[in-house]
Design a protein around this nucleic acid. Structure first.
Lengths: 127, 127
DNA sequence: CCTACATGATTACAGGTGTAATCTTAATTG
DNA sequence: CAATTAAGATTACACCTGTAATCATGTAGG
């Protein structure tokens, strides 16, 4: 059963995406600067992720080493699609527009977008 | 105090974005086909939106006519930015890429994106 | 004029979430 | 070997959410 991952849980999962398998304590340390979470809180979040089958672990002595069971790219793709449908009624352009308006769009983004568009157009032609 | 709008609340808000001011009953009717919500549920959601100051109303006899206090474009922009930061670590291209990969990108999207890019590039030049 | 109905207000209630504290148990240390 | 410690497991608890039901009240119809 793959339930929704909450925002706090996502922060923990991000740590595991960056590096894994790691112990609960290493996760706590990795989160220490960014968030002001208590160690117990992080452990709870890890537990919940395990319960949701988003994270697995292997035993390492009496401690566990945790690692993600869901891949970041999969997660991002699924969430993006659902976000675009839920909030943007399925249109992606307004999102990019808002991003541009807030000066969040940089040259790298634009280059990537142009590449994507070129790919898409090529795809259309020999379809 | 402008709290977060939940998913169910958003559905109600969408109705008001499409047409307002309208009565609670008109909202119920507008939602009747899409969702299987009980009238009472819709009223609760309207109340919560009012409590969150996302929706206002004016009296019309003994009933209220509801209308949005937050504009859709503002909401979408804010949510998009926070989504991209929270889930995509601030990069927008992967989102578009995922969208393209799932064949959700159509000619209209591409045209709009090209226009946005053109605007952005012009903006950069005389900056 | 009184009663039924419609409307908003209040209350309900289980499950999720943020944020921990306490419990259990195995290992480490003196 | 006993006591402290550290890991994970269990429990806590208030607030949010989905999904209504019940309450109060003003209005409209008989």
């Amino acid at each position: 059963m793959n339930k929704d991952i909450s925002q706090a849980e996502l922060e923990v999962l991000k740590v595991l995406w960056a590096r894994s398998p790691i112990s609960a304590n290493e996760v706590v340390i990795a989160l220490a600067d960014a968030s002001a979470w208590h160690e117990k809180t992080v452990k709870t979040l890890l537990n919940r992720l395990v319960a949701k089958e988003a994270v697995g672990y292997e035993k390492d002595g009496r401690a566990y080493l945790y690692y993600p069971l869901v891949q970041q790219a999969d997660y991002q793709q699924k969430e993006s699609l659902s976000f675009i449908q839920r909030v943007l009624s399925g249109r992606i352009a307004p999102l990019v527009a808002g991003f541009a308006k807030q000066q969040k769009l940089d040259a790298k983004d634009v280059a990537e977008l142009k590449q994507l568009i070129a790919d898409w157009e090529k795809e259309q032609k020999h379809d």
